[in-house]
Every structure is written in structure tokens, then in C-alpha cells.
Amino acid sequence: MKTTILEKDGKTLVSIKGELDTGTCAKFQEAVKPLTGKEGLDVEFDLSELEYISSRGLRILISLQQDIMARGGKMRIKNVSTSVREVFDVTGLSKSFLNID
């Protein structure tokens, strides 16, 4: 699992590569920590290379979005692969919580 965070034109681009499972979640949480506690962030996740997400991975994404939105920021997700999309759909997150392009 590899997380890349880029700052571009006031936007924060996050891309995750690999699998977000029980073993890699702690690493991912550490990687996105700089995104918490900041006002008015505009964050975009590129999940084209994310192959799998476990429930712990979902939890981190949800907490992150809650934190970003509570501080007046925005969080969007794009390029979701089919398998991850299915998880977002089944959990109702794509319809009712996450902003997925």
C-alpha cells in the first residue's frame, strides 16, 4: 500500500495504491494524518489504483471526511475501481455519504 499526497493549486490530491486492509490501515492512517485538523481543505482522492478496502479502511476515510467537512473543507473521491465501488455501494456510502465522481 502506498499513499501519495500532492498539493496543487490549493487542492490536495491523495492517491492510494494497493490494498487497504487490516495490515496496511495503520500506515494509511498515519499518512493522512496531516490532512486532519486543517481548516477549509479541498481534498480529492484518486482511487484508481486502490484494489481493496476493508472496513477499517472505510472507517479512516469516513473519519477523515467528517473531520474535513467539520472544518469547512471538501472531500471528493474519483476513479474508483469496480471492486472498491462495490464496497462503497453495499455500505451505502456512495449514495449517502461519500462524494464520488
Binding site: 453495499v90 455500505t91 456510502l93 449517502s96 455519504f97
Partner: peptide, 22 residues
């Protein structure tokens, strides 16, 4: 947000709803 229940060999038709606690 739970997994799809199998009823008589097929997945139960359902409209996905959000997991609890979000």
C-alpha cells in the same frame, strides 16, 4: 450497509443503505 443476504440461492434484492454510525 451489510452483506447481501442469500434467500433461496439468490441475493436478496435491496437498496443499499448507509452503515450505522456515520
Amino acid at each position: 450497509g451489510h452483506t447481501k443476504t442469500v434467500v433461496n440461492g439468490r441475493f436478496l434484492p435491496q437498496d443499499p443503505q448507509l452503515i450505522a454510525g456515520v
